[in-house]
Design a protein around this nucleic acid. Structure first.
Lengths: 336, 336
DNA sequence: AAGGCCGATGAAAACGTTTACGTTCGGGCT
DNA sequence: AGCCCGAACGTAAACGTTTTCATCGGCCTT
């Protein structure tokens, strides 16, 4: 279909080699021919064919991002961070979400082979075996929030346990006792770490209080349902810690609709600190992760791996801390 | 680096042609050799090289999405809709955002040449000349919310004017008079349409009331600033219509912090109906656009264009209606 | 004036696939 | 028995680049 380098060469009365040299600034062409080639290329609206170029160059200037989902503010922020960093490195972004688990993720990984210079993988539901089986060998890869085993790959992950513990201890310290927890999708590694920290903190500080755990799916709707259940419980919990902010926000809506006040009747806290958390009312207490920073850091690491390819830089495992962000939704303990 | 089709052929003691036929299910291989080839390919973990394949196939199974930005819920929803539809068509997604306008957008477009089967372009700040100059010729393309001129390209756009008019008339009908408007980024086509409808509706229904227009940048922060200005104005407007929901939400926060009530002191309305709109408090009245649907529809249209390539299906221009979603943030008019 | 060197240019190989076209071979038909 | 046909498989061209290597001048040096 399109106009190729041969067309330009013929029109400019030079060889394709000269056109390539001229357009890529490799020198070895006289200023006069360079100008002529440039003119012809522009007139013909010649655009190099990416696939052909990267076939020989072995560079695609593209990185692939395999994410569990694209829904919600968390991924919006994450992609934004990745995109921003990618832009400064002159890299394009090929995204893929692996909703339905292993099979689709594997297919996406295959489809990326030969189209990307590196891989950014976030796959909280994939185990190490899946990764070893499906990750292309020899392709720079950075794992995010993925269960890590050996130092095969570079990895970044947020400190789920630390963040969750901060939240629970904040709630306890503010005077709340009966603290419920809303889970995320089953089998999600992040969720598991957060729930474990929740249980541990409870067992450590108030061993006489039993954990209360409700199911959730990381979206507002499931948080809303959990909120309805909470409001109807007897005795009613006095605080709830949702495994992410989206659910916390949905939960708040349900609590309000049940005629209860936040935080007087039930305090609410989340995890992630999505941009919206500060704009809901009351503003949401949460464990803040610099989500965009996480994406940026991952891409930087990947870019470094791509550039200095193969030299013995050990595959770093970085833990991103989560810090407590206290807002109005957990403001003061109820008098008791 | 990787293992190629030649390695598989050698190991299975057949020609590369047979390997290709076998693995692509083109027939012409005996069941026995097919099995052997499959086994070798699996053992060697052979993955076809995408660039090489698409070079000859002229199919990349990838579509490029050029968006003005990736920030916020609007794009999150849009990408999600596109991704969902792409998945059902077996297409990958190459995203690119063109923050800094023309130059970067042009570069992104060039980089996509030969890597995508079609283009999804949303570029509210690009004019027709830019598009004609930079869009690759002969590549299926669908424009979204872009100023359209002739029927060169298929295009979808939301009915900005209709939606904005609905919002303003709702505010007027509920009893608000002094209605302010918060703009979006300068030169943005959507914003221009919304502002025009706002002015027209005001002029038509309450010609004695002067428009009040504040600058904005589509993000919460600029909405917040606008809210501060609003709260300090003398006389104070009794309602504000933000050009998108993100700004409306930021604006609400500022209004609340100024000690004013919503909607008793100032009513607030937005545009887009992002998922979060129903979860803020009070819930936000807005002009609802099925954002994910928009993305989905655009991709469907593009996929159709790619498949039935070139046959005279006229390039449709579809207008997506925006419907009024009334929530608590504009609940009742102040008594006057 | 002859030889050598360097800069500009062209020819061709290479990247990893798919596919058009041959070639071989076995079997069914006359 | 000879012929033809189709199935299985191999050879090689093609896709659009980049890059190595060779070639061709011209100019500088001796």
């Amino acid at each position: 279909m399109g106009v190729t380098i041969k067309d330009v060469a013929r029109e400019a009365k030079v060889s394709v080699a000269s056109v390539s040299r001229a357009l890529n600034g490799h020198g070895g062409v006289t200023a006069e021919t360079l100008e002529r080639i440039r003119e012809v290329a522009a007139r013909l609206r010649y655009i190099p064919h990416g696939a052909a170029r990267s076939l020989i160059t072995r560079r695609t200037h593209t990185i692939g991002a395999l994410l569990p989902d694209l829904y919600g503010e968390f991924f919006s922020e994450l992609i934004r961070g990745i995109d921003l960093a990618a832009r400064t490195h002159g890299l394009q972004l090929l995204v893929s979400s692996s909703h339905d688990g292993a099979a689709e993720a594997a297919a996406a990984l295959r489809a990326m082979q030969g189209r990307v210079d590196g891989l950014l993988v976030m796959s909280p539901h994939a185990d190490a075996a899946f990764l070893r089986q499906n990750l292309p060998v020899g392709l720079p890869t950075v794992l995010m929030n993925t269960v890590l085993e050996r130092d095969d790959y570079a990895a970044l992950s947020v400190d789920n346990a630390g963040g969750a513990r901060l939240v629970v201890e904040h709630l306890l310290g503010t005077g709340y006792r009966r603290i419920a927890f809303i889970q995320g999708p089953a089998g999600n590694h992040d969720v598991a770490e957060r729930e474990r920290a929740y249980r541990d903190a409870l067992a450590e500080h108030v061993p006489d209080v039993a954990p209360i755990v409700l199911p959730g799916e990381f979206d507002e709707a499931s948080g809303y349902r959990a909120g309805q259940q909470l409001a109807a419980m007897q005795p009613r919990p006095d605080a709830v810690f949702a495994a992410n902010d989206m659910m916390a926000i949905g939960c708040m809506a349900a609590i309000r609709e049940a005629g209860l006040r936040i935080p007087e009747d039930i305090a609410v806290a989340g995890f992630d600190d999505v941009p919206m958390a500060r704009y809901v009312s009351p503003a949401l207490t949460t464990a803040g992760v610099r989500i965009a920073e996480l994406g940026k850091a991952a891409l930087e690491q990947l870019a470094a791996q791509i550039d200095g390819n193969g030299d013995g830089t050990p595959h770093a495992h970085v833990r991103i801390p989560a810090e407590l962000v206290v807002r109005a939704s957990t403001a003061r303990a109820p008098s008791r």
